[in-house]
């Protein structure tokens, strides 16, 4: 560990450790994720049957894999939103963050990743096991999809964070950022493919979704992990994730810098 990176690593580890105090919440989250998984599976399995065994390239087993992977990754990519930074912007406490010798965006990223890695370690496997035992699902048997999938999940978490971060710091220009955050959460979860795979969207909506970073957050990790896309196609999808990572990161940094200027000029 290079000394220069140590503060970020500490933030990440502390945030991971803090989550271990909320084990009842983990159990509750698993109950909720599993229930929604069964409801989603019922609808989508029926859809596959009604469509004659295949819909938008999904057969029964790959659809079920989609359902349980999406439920398992839900906590890790935190589609349920973040409000901490936005609240600190609203109350002005963000000035304390600016006073620290650490970059705001990346220090919050470290804390976010700590939380996400904890969620990944506790919330990914149980839905997959439950899915395998009840509805049955197919996962790849070679190592490739898992290795690239791990990268895709990490990228998905990071893109998710940068997007939420940008929406939170827009709070510098709003009296109350909560409404915008809710709005973002609703739209992003849908376009990320949480409820229905993006591949099932009608053409125009599919195109629209692909013009946003949201499929990179959840759909791409699922597609790579489940082996639905492999080889060059999978690498291309991960490259698209990197592109959105750069874009969302840049927007967040720009907004932060502008927001800081505003804070300096107007005194919070």
């Amino acid at each position: 560990m290079p000394p220069a990176l140590r503060p970020w690593f500490r933030l990440l580890r502390a945030s991971f450790a803090a989550q271990t105090r909320y084990l009842p919440a983990v159990a509750g989250g698993l109950i909720a994720n599993t229930t929604f998984g069964f409801l989603k599976a019922a609808m989508l399995v029926a859809t596959v049957h009604a469509a004659g065994g295949s819909v938008a390239g999904y057969d029964l087993e790959s659809m079920v894999a989609y359902v349980w992977l999406s439920q398992g990754l839900l906590g890790a990519v935190q589609l349920n939103g973040t409000s901490e930074i936005g609240e600190r912007v609203r109350t002005g406490e963000v000035a304390i963050d600016f006073a620290r010798p650490l970059d705001i965006q990346t220090s919050y990223l470290a804390a976010d990743l700590g939380r996400n890695l904890f969620n990944l370690s506790t919330r990914l496997l149980p839905p997959l096991v439950i899915g395998a035992l009840t509805t049955g699902l197919r996962l790849p048997t070679s190592a490739g999809p898992y290795l690239l999938g791990a990268i895709a999940v990490l990228l998905g978490m990071t893109v998710s964070f940068f997007g939420r971060y940008a929406v939170n710091v827009i709070g510098f220009w709003l009296v109350e950022g909560r409404g915008l955050r809710n709005f973002y959460m609703i739209v992003s979860t849908f376009l990320a493919g949480l409820f229905v795979p993006v591949g099932m969207f009608p053409g125009w909506l599919h195109t629209l979704a692909n013009c946003t970073p949201f499929p990179s957050i959840l759909m791409t990790p699922i597609d790579v992990l489940s082996g639905r896309i492999v080889g060059a196609e999978a690498v291309r999808a991960v490259a698209v994730q990197v592109f959105w990572l750069a874009v969302t990161c840049a927007i967040g940094r720009l907004l932060t810098a502008r927001g800081w200027l505003k804070l300096e000029v107007q005194g919070g």
Binding site: Y22, P24, A25, A27, G28, G29, I31, A32, T34, T35, F36
Partner: peptide
């Protein structure tokens, strides 16, 4: 404790 996720089910 922190059971709102469980009841969300």
């Amino acid at each position: 404790i922190s059971g709102s996720e469980a009841t969300a089910a």
